[in-house]
Nucleic acid binder design. Sequence first.
DNA 1: CCGTGATCATGG
DNA 2: CCATGATCACGG
Length: 238
Amino acid sequence: MESGDLTDASEQLQPPRNEPQTETELLARCSVIAGMTLGELAKLAKVKIPKDFKRHKGWAGQLIELWLGAEAGSKPTQDFQHLGIELKTIPVDYQGMPLETTYVCYCPLQGLQGLNWLNSNVFNKLQRVLWLPVQGNRDIAPADRIIGNGFLWSPNANQINVLRNDWEELMEAIVLGNVAQITARMGDALHLRPKAASGQITAEATGDSGTLIQTRPRGFYLRKSFTQQILQQQFGTF
DNA sequence: CCGTGATCATGG
DNA sequence: CCATGATCACGG
């Protein structure tokens, strides 16, 4: 190919410069990237592609954010707050099954007066989620992993009940000073796990008899069995 | 084999 | 340190 042929920059697909103004626009952006690989999206956006995710664990999610027009950052709010939508990329295997649990949000350990399910960060984020499956098998290089079809989801009445029960059980234990006794085995759909840069990081919490203790920061995660049901609802049984 | 507990990068 | 984006990797 001679230089100058088919290289007009205006012909090149580029990441959007703004956040989507409507749900329709957001879904249209999903359609654009569906079927493409992470490598193609990275190259078009001039983003360096890691060989693996050992030291780039959030790379795919951040690349998707870029292509959907989500603001980067670490705000404890929905990704598309004006649309009331949270974005979650989810790594799936060749059968479309989740390969990992899904992080929801940080878990507050102090200042819990007045906190309830309906005003919780968990409920806020899970009210409406844009799920975007991405191939995640480790035998596929990051650059070759294909983006799936994103879809909007809201929990049905039964799913809300399960989530609320888990959340209330976990938060009650924290309020009662039992955070140190919580393990990731608690919770049917939603569970609690350490969430920090290392095991040395600490956060304040309430311990036995109301004493102040130092514990590992925790985050809420969705079990694979729960997200698997969501994917099955959308795409059918496997 | 798989889930739990640990860890990595980044921005504020 | 908090909170986001998550995946890694070891022990049961």
